[in-house]
Design a binder for these strands. Structure first.
Lengths: 280, 280
DNA sequence: TGTACATCAGTGAACGCGCGTTCACTGATGTAC
DNA sequence: TGTACATCAGTGAACGCGCGTTCACTGATGTAC
């Protein structure tokens, strides 16, 4: 029983794992040049010095390789969000001391709910800016003719679940403002259209959907909080997408300050204002 | 001087205009099947019963046809937003009476700023749901290797300008809450990261960017309002993109109620609460 | 009104390219006795 | 330790396909006198 990283694996198994990784790496590289539709098995094989048919020993089809890349991407951004939210929490609780622990994703130092939420936002954006084509692969327009298999929904849920965990913790510590105070209080929205009602109150089908979501995620949060969290979630990705896809070119580019401002507003939206101050 | 629709145009000119339109129509149809990368001149020509080289009399290249589709799409969604915002305004001002005027896009009936903003939001979403592949073409991941020419920026600006016009009118009528009261007031956001400061105040580079934007658009609005308007704009498209691109599948689908709720919150964000009541 | 010429739309063949996937094969790696 | 067999990775050729773009051409439409 050796301590080598490849203990207990035959040369064949090691070679297979390594080549599988290299294929995906090369595919990712090509993704950034030609996009998802331009991803070509032949080109990947060529770059790896193999013949194209050899790839079929590793991935049964092009779509299968694409799926692997999608799952990897969801897991990568999900892990980044979880690490940022979790690391910030540990830092505040006086967690694993010493060493360069934690702050891998954005330098969040305060473990309050505000800091965790903000850190997760920055982590997602940071990952997106560092891996724009993988971001486009999972959050951009769907690849036509490609149907994402069920294996992707688990990894895809990691980011939203990371955000929900922050809210759940805040609620447990009694620092979550569940009343929807700061969001869109006051006068009437939705003048026409029937749904939406006359204020920020959540009812009807929307409340049902929120209840289903609460059940599915195990997040015991009031419907209003869940709905605002989902809206904040769409807000986050809306801003990142506009930044990456070039809609902000010529106005709010670079978007760092706009993003920070949006985070501050988002905290009010989800009911996290006043939980812990700055200066972590 | 006849009153015929084709007055003063030769048969050749008429045929050319008509075929140009038909080519774009067929290209749009193919867009919805195979996406932007799958758009093929040969396939378009085939569907039209022509030989592929004939298309080069109408569009000098595939990219050129794509550009035409992009410009058309921006103009279509821009016109929808303008009509919704404008029609709502006219209806309130007692504009063009009689006939089925105006409410083409979402049934906005009250001409207050709230109603106009909400109507514009619904118009954009309505257009997106009706033309998902054109939406993906302009707001989805960029087509790799395709560089949008300068002709697209004008049409692309129509939607944001429509929203800005609502805010400008509201400001002129003194019904715009420019203080950022409801957005993300209260405690501290941006615990770390330097930028963003300790509240919802806009300063530094962000204020500069807002000033540049105000200059460019001629919208004499305070920087804080502009920044929140831009954030609301990204929010709107973030939600539509998630709905169209399948991120809401299994939770908040159909998203009508969620969307209406988001509009209500958005009105608070941009400072339009309390401008005119419901029941237009 | 009629003729001579210029303009333009559409044809058909071709160039050169890349793609995903299959298949019979060689040779290396692993395993059972 | 050594041999016989099974497993598997990678090869090279091929199938059948579609693509964007060019080019010399025919024939119809428009224009000037």
């Amino acid at each position: 029983v050796s301590t080598a990283p490849h203990a207990g694996r035959t040369a064949r198994e090691r070679a297979r794992a390594e080549l599988t990784r290299e294929i995906k790496e090369e595919a990712r590289r090509q993704l950034s040049v030609s996009g998802a539709d331009g991803l070509s098995l032949r080109a990947v094989a060529r770059s790896l010095g193999m013949v194209s048919s050899a790839l079929y020993r590793y991935f049964p089809s092009r779509d299968n390789l694409l799926t692997a890349l999608i799952i990897d991407a969801y897991n990568a951004v999900g892990a980044a969000a979880e690490a940022a939210a979790g690391a910030a929490a540990e830092a505040a609780a006086g967690g694993p001391a010493g060493g360069p622990a934690g702050g891998a994703a954005g330098g969040a130092a305060s473990g309050d709910a505000c800091g965790r939420w903000a850190a997760a936002c920055r982590a997602v954006r940071g990952w997106a800016l560092a891996n724009p084509h993988e971001y486009a692969l999972i959050y951009g327009s769907p690849v036509p003719g490609y149907q994402a298999p069920a294996d992707t929904v688990g990894p895809a849920a990691r980011v939203p679940l990371a955000f929900l965990s922050v809210l759940r913790d805040a609620a447990e510590h009694g620092v979550l403002d569940a009343g929807g105070a700061s969001g869109g209080a006051g006068g009437a929205g939705g003048a026409a259209g029937g749904a939406g009602g006359a204020g920020a109150e959540v009812g009807g089908r929307l409340a049902e959907q929120a209840a289903v979501l609460a059940e599915a995620t195990g997040a015991a949060l009031p419907p209003g909080v869940l709905v605002r969290a989902v809206i904040a979630w769409t807000q986050l990705f809306g801003m990142i997408s506009f930044e990456l896809f070039g809609q902000l070119v010529g106005s709010f580019e670079p978007a760092d300050d706009l993003f920070e401002h949006a985070i501050a507003l988002m905290l009010g939206l989800v009911g996290l204002t006043g939980t812990g101050g700055p200066g972590g």
